[in-house]
Each structure stands twice: as structure tokens, then as C-alpha cells.
Design a protein around this nucleic acid. Structure first.
Lengths: 190, 190
DNA sequence: TTGCAACTATACAGACCGGTATGTATTATT
DNA sequence: AATAATACATACCGGTCTGTATAGTTGCAA
């Protein structure tokens, strides 16, 4: 199935980490699910922490790419692209496998501020916000930093809300708020 | 110090659960920090799960009361009260002990959807949103449910943002967005 | 066919987990 | 002074955790 054992292990671990939580997923469970052995896992990932960070890096790349591709697919004008981000996330939340944001969850699981996991989570957060800021800039917002941060908050808030109560249509409601904030920000530009 | 040992244990556990995470906090650590023994802990709390739920219930009450009191202290008109909620949270985020929202974090730590912890988190979330909805209703919003959900998202989003990157002034930026959404919602009323 | 590398199988080490058993000291009430 | 409740001290249980050691198996290539 998987040509590369290392990738296969990472992929399996990634799925378990996301669906069950990182601390709740033992190495034995990963090994069993991947159909391999501890020896092989520890050959490619010297420690569970390394595997966790690999998982976060992989998830970060996958998520950013998915957002960029989804936006490109749905809109051509910057202002519409900003709203398309919400549509991409709305689709994500609809999936039955949805279990919140991997980075928010990881950040909550590893409390210590200096933890590498925290850093990885912040790294994604910054990258995501930069995407929004660039779109806001292109749309002509006079304060793309502030607008992008506000939109990012709406999205994280909607994710958290949907995580606690499924099928609440949180992202749609966030999108309505986004529309107002975007409009307001752009008309202040003139 | 503590008149009631049960309360003392709960208070100690609550602090550790919040600052270090629930799964990261062992019963032994709680016992040691509280200066008592396992036997006494297990007399009042039959299992760690019971202690965790007691912690969440206590945190819920404390948080809701703090919000209500803080709002009452800061504003008298409903519209101003809605904005005062953001000021209350802004104060919370400024504390060096701030480590995110106890309920968002707990929800992330316990992945299973049917878990009592998830239920407790959702319970707080609903109660909080109902406070906002009532204020929105009093302020004359034509759709208090939607407005309250949007404001709640901004707040959770700001909390999560501040958790990953401290001193970012997230709540102030969320408050600016809230002001726009509230104004927009109320002028649509007439 | 031999040799080598990748992978498997399994057992184990050592630490920590939640939870229990047994017994003792302290305090207040009667 | 006797009793009962409360809390402490300590050792222990079975289980699980990450990580390692040792040995056997497979497949491929020279």
C-alpha cells in the first residue's frame, strides 16, 4: 500500500493524533494501526516528540495548501477570495472526521509556553494570518493586519464552537460577520 | 488555611488542571501540592474524573459570575454592556496566569464526542452565549442569537490567538470588530 | 549461493498512571 | 476516659507509557 514506510507511519500517526488527541495516542496504537513494529517506528522517528512535530509540520503544509487551492478554485477577486476562505472552512467542518483545529488542540494539550508544539501551532497561525493579510492587502484594505486578525479570530472561534456543538452552522454565521467587517474595512479606505 | 479540605483539594487541583493541563496533572501531583494524601482525595472525589468535572463546574460558575459582575461594574446600558464583556476578557488575558480558556482546552484534551468533559464545555459555552444573547436582546438587536454567536466567536478566537502569541492585544482587536458588528446589527433594526 | 539491509517479532526495562489496603496520629464529642 | 471521625503515612496493585535489546525473517542483488 504505502511505498514508503516512513511516510506510512507518519500518515497513520497523523490520523490518530488528530482523531484521538496526541497524548491519548500511544506508540503501540500507532504501530498496530500502521501494521509495523516499534523498532521500525523508532528507526525513522527517534522519539514520539519527533513524530508529533512531523505530524504538525505535515498538517500545516496540507492545511495551508488546501486553503490556497480552495480559495483559488472559488474566487478570482481578492475580496471574494477573503470570503472564499470561509467557504473552504465550512466544507472542512462538514466532514464527519472533523475534530477541531489540529493546532488549537495541540496547543491546548501541551500547556508549557516554551514547548515546541506551541511553537509549531503559532507557526501555522502566523502563516494562516499572513495569507489573510495578503488577500486583505490586495483587496485594498487600509489596515490589512487588523482585518486579517479579526477574520482569523472569527474562523478559530467558529471552529471551536463547532467542535463543542456539531452541525451548528457556525462557519456560516462567522462568514456573515466577515462580510460586514470586510465591507466596513474597504469602504473606510476611500 | 483551608477550612474545608474538600474545597482545598478542589481549589488546588483546579489551579493545576488549568495551568498544566488536565491529563498532564497526575493525582500524586495534586495530593502533594495540596499537602494531603490520596486517601483523603479519594474520600471526597471517588475518581479523578469526578475531580475534573468538579473543577469544570467550579470554573464555569466562577467565570460566569466574573463576567456578569464585570459587566455590571462597567456599564449600565445594554449596548455598552456588550462591549464591556470584551473589556472583562481583555483584563483576563492580561494576567500572567492566563493559559487560554479552561473549556476550550478541556474540549481539546478529551477528544471523544460523548465524553462528560465535552458536555461540560458545551454547557459553559451555551451559558456564556445566552448571556450575550440576553444583552443583545436588551440592546434591541433584531437577531440576538446570531449577534451573540458572532461576538462569542470573536472572543474565543481572541483567546486562542492570545494563547499562542502572548501580548498581541487580540481582545482589543476583537473588540473593534465587535463594535462594528453591534452597530450594524442595531441600525438594521429600525 | 551468499551477503546484506530492511523489516518483523517479542520480550523487557524503568517510569508513571489511577486507585487501594493497612495502619496510625490527631481531634472533638460524649 | 472511651469513642468516632478526620486526616496522615506508606506501601502496594495492575496496567500503560516511552523506549530498547535481541533474535528471526524476508527479499534483493552481486
Amino acid at each position: 500500500m504505502a511505498r514508503n514506510l516512513q511516510d506510512h507511519i507518519l500518515q497513520t500517526a497523523s490520523g490518530l493524533f488528530y482523531s484521538q488527541g496526541i497524548k491519548a495516542t500511544g506508540v503501540d496504537a500507532i504501530v498496530k494501526a500502521a501494521g509495523t513494529t516499534k523498532m521500525s517506528l523508532y528507526k525513522y522517528f527517534p522519539s514520539k516528540d519527533d513524530l508529533v512535530l512531523a505530524h504538525l509540520n505535515k498538517s500545516r503544509d496540507a492545511m495551508l495548501n488546501r486553503i490556497l487551492a480552495g480559495v483559488e478554485l472559488r474566487a478570482s477577486e481578492p475580496k471574494q477570495k477573503l470570503l472564499a476562505v470561509f467557504a473552504v472552512f465550512d466544507e472542512l467542518l462538514a466532514s464527519p472526521e472533523f475534530r477541531g483545529c489540529p493546532f488549537i488542540n495541540a496547543s491546548a494539550e501541551f500547556a508549557e509556553a516554551a514547548n515546541p508544539v506551541q511553537l509549531a501551532a503559532a507557526e501555522f497561525s502566523d502563516a494562516f494570518r499572513e495569507i489573510l493579510a495578503e488577500l486583505a492587502r490586495q483587496a485594498g484594505s487600509p489596515d490589512p493586519e487588523q482585518l486579517s486578525q479579526q477574520l482569523a479570530m472569527l474562523i478559530s472561534g467558529a471552529i471551536v464552537s463547532e467542535q463543542m456543538r456539531r452541525q451548528s452552522g457556525a462557519m456560516r454565521i462567522a462568514s456573515a460577520a466577515a462580510k460586514i467587517l470586510i465591507e466596513q474595512s474597504l469602504t473606510t479606505a476611500g
